[in-house]
């Protein structure tokens, strides 16, 4: 993987292992007899280089977790654009040693947790989350922070935050909406958080999802949006951050949010 970034410094020493990443395949809900609409895009079959990196001193490395959950390319490109040192890794040690971690995610809850388990990454991700270093879950990577999801009822999430993940209702009172929630929607901030520094009220961000988080503890909710119902679309609990929307696809607002996260990783 070509390292992009304008950090200056000597490039880190990189030990590369070429691995083939299996894609996550969405499972149709046969019982419902209808075409399932995945929470997000399932993984693609891609070849990734998993870099076990030894970063030079002073360089704050953000590790993007590679668990076959697809679309981390956009996150990579956004970090490259911001000049933030980063790597893509499926290696437990690299993840633990990183200065910050981003858990991207596209696909179904059960498949994502299965993929994390298959790659032996559940513990390292949980350990990192408990380390106090900045951690950002995006989209499905945000949903798996919680204990469980209606999308995959028998599958346990990472259980780092209390709450549930429910299907977005197509109907709420008089309102009928299309599911997935796909497009731009505006944010409200129940509390101030570093993640949204410099981002105005009612800022628009980009969503693609069929399931939404209901956080158990209102104190952790950093942003909400309204669709057929109010949804908790960002949380901030100490070092643990998560967004339902895709900051890497949310234009200038999204880049500002990612910039804020990058800044947290340099503290």
């Amino acid at each position: 993987m070509r390292r992009e970034g304008r950090g200056g410094n000597l490039p880190p020493v990189v030990v590369r292992r070429r691995i083939e990443v299996r894609g996550i395949r969405t499972q149709a809900r046969e019982s419902a007899g209808e075409r399932s609409s995945p929470a997000c895009v399932p993984a693609r079959k891609m070849l990734y280089y998993s870099a076990k990196t030894i970063a030079p001193r002073g360089r704050n490395l953000i590790a993007i977790v590679d668990y076959g959950a697809g679309n981390l390319g956009s996150v990579q490109k956004a970090l490259a654009y911001l000049g933030a040192p980063h790597c893509v890794s499926a290696d437990a040690d690299t993840i633990r040693a990183a200065d910050a971690v981003i858990l991207p995610g596209v696909g179904a809850f059960g498949d994502a947790m299965g993929a994390l388990r298959t790659r032996g990454l559940v513990e390292s991700v949980q350990d990192f989350a408990r380390s106090g270093k900045p951690f950002l879950g995006i989209c499905l990577g945000y949903q798996v922070l919680f204990a469980a999801s209606d999308e995959s009822p028998d599958v346990a999430g990472l259980g780092l935050l209390p709450g549930t993940v429910r299907r977005i209702p197509a109907q709420c009172g008089d309102t009928t909406v299309k599911v997935p929630h796909m497009g731009w929607n505006s944010l409200r901030y129940p509390k101030k958080s570093a993640l949204f520094g410099g981002v105005p009220d009612d800022a628009y961000v980009y969503f693609v999802h069929s399931y939404f988080v209901q956080a158990q503890d209102p104190a952790i909710i950093a942003a909400t949006t309204d669709y057929s119902t109010r949804m908790d679309v960002a949380v901030a609990e100490g070092n643990l951050l998560g967004t339902q929307f895709h900051p890497e696809k949310s234009g200038k607002v999204g880049l500002q949010i990612l910039r804020n996260f990058v800044e947290l990783s340099t503290r």
Binding site: T26, P38, P42, K45, V106, P180
Partner: peptide
């Protein structure tokens, strides 16, 4: 394509 990448692709 939907099976491999997801409907919204």
């Amino acid at each position: 394509a939907a099976e491999k990448f997801g409907s919204q692709c």
